[in-house]
Write a protein that binds this DNA or RNA. Structure first.
Lengths: 133, 133
DNA sequence: ACTTGTCTACGAAGTTAGTCGTAGAACGAG
DNA sequence: CTCGTTCTACGACTAACTTCGTAGACAAGT
């Protein structure tokens, strides 16, 4: 019954993953309290969510002590990439360009960040003249 | 009972909006056939969805002829922007930078497109030295 | 040992999205 | 006029997500 392959996390599951990514392995209580800073949530609600996420292989848990310690089973980057791909398809019909333009156009970006992007652009330009990796 | 303010479209609603944006005002049948090119969908399913979207003010409809003609009540850009904002928050914790980097890094972008982004960057840089709009 | 508090496990209820069946109106042949 | 087709409207069913209540295990303090 143990199936691998972590699926797309739901909205709330993602919030929990964010907490785990930010703070590392945590108990249910910790996660719950972190959640409550944003949105009132019952303890058992958080518990249940984590249990479900465990079933889905979205998180792992250490059952040594009485309070289990949960940690993300997927990395933040992996997940972001996966969600981004999907989002790109559904919302921007696959045009990374349009997405980037809108993201840059409508959100305050510091000059330093713009510079960072400029570097990436240069790097991409160079790579594109080479063989595809 | 008529409340304005179009809400966040769901996954399937978005697919329908895409069709309307691409092809302009359409009948239920047309939308349904477009959907079927991707995914087998019953006629009444499409109908119901459009009716619901009508209630939600996501689409408008012309009831002149027997087959109603639906059209998007929101523009593609508006909607993309709104979904992007949300996505940015939930998935990238608000960092437009990280999103852009990942989008550019992992999707084939043509040199022409890179150039277009470069122009935008220059424009942003100039604007940032002015007063904030 | 008893009480109090914290933990896991489990099940049930509420919500929303998506699916479709069926009924009845409208239309167009023949 | 009557039959078959196409349409809208409506209601019901399923599945997934989220929420929480309750029960029982476990530990700690008095």
């Amino acid at each position: 019954m143990e199936n691998n392959a972590p699926p797309k996390p739901t909205e709330t599951e993602l919030e929990i993953l964010q907490i785990l990514w930010q703070h590392g392995p945590s108990t249910v209580r910790f996660v719950n309290e972190a959640q409550n800073k944003t949105k009132e949530t019952g303890y058992t609600t958080t518990l249940k969510l984590l249990q479900i996420m465990f079933e889905k292989n979205l998180v792992l848990r250490d059952e040594e002590s009485r309070s289990h310690v949960y940690r993300a089973a997927v990395t933040e980057e992996e997940t972001q990439q996966r969600l981004l791909d999907r989002f790109l398809d559904t919302t921007f019909r696959g045009s990374a360009m349009k997405l980037v333009m809108q993201a840059l156009g409508n959100h305050r970006t510091t000059p330093a960040e713009l510079d960072q992007i400029r570097h990436l652009l240069k790097k991409l330009e160079n790579d594109s003249s080479n063989a595809d990796l």
